[in-house]
Design a protein around this nucleic acid. Structure first.
Length: 154
DNA sequence: GCCAACGTTGGC
DNA sequence: GCCAACGTTGGC
């Protein structure tokens, strides 16, 4: 069992968008960074915990709890010529990009980035490091527990 | 909208 | 393989 933080731009797919989807599940397509791809392809398992993070918006922060709901499979958008995620170097035989599915567990009251910074327990989180841009980052179990048990208001 | 930080590209 | 140029990310 591993834990992850996954960024989504709410203008693209917000926590409410996720909640409105069938099965409250979404294919995490569009990742075009090798490190993030490798996390999905090589290290994620069904049932892994996910913090659903809103990035590039007015109040960035953790908006919900989710779970990995599929193993990785080729990202369909890499083959679609009219998609902004189209990759001319990818082929059906040798796909370059992969994604998992992510399913909502529960929406939470937004924990803003500024709030995360208040807690010494979380100071090593990748999301809080200067210059971090990686859209998928692993979480320590202790960080997951602190956030989901202590910060999340039930 | 600004801009620092980072990843990728491509000439050499 | 180096590294300058470029494009993107994402907080502010």
């Amino acid at each position: 069992m591993r834990y992850w933080l996954m960024k989504s731009e709410p203008g693209d797919c917000s926590i409410d968008d996720l909640a409105a989807l069938p099965e409250q599940s979404v294919a995490w397509y569009g990742v075009r960074n090798y490190q993030a791809r490798n996390f999905m392809r090589d290290q994620m398992h069904v049932g892994d915990g996910v913090l659903f993070y809103h990035s590039n918006c007015a109040v960035p922060g953790i908006a919900g709890i989710a779970r990995v709901s599929s193993t990785a499979y080729p990202d369909a958008t890499q083959f679609k010529r009219n998609s902004k995620y189209f990759d001319p170097k990818a082929t059906q035989e040798t796909p370059r990009w992969f994604n998992v599915d992510v399913q909502l567990v529960k929406k939470i009251g937004l924990i803003p980035l500024s709030g995360l910074r208040q807690h010494p327990e979380l100071e090593r989180m990748r999301i809080l490091q200067r210059g971090n841009r990686l859209s998928i980052t692993p979480l320590d179990p202790a960080e997951w527990k602190f956030i989901t048990h202590t910060l999340v208001k039930s």
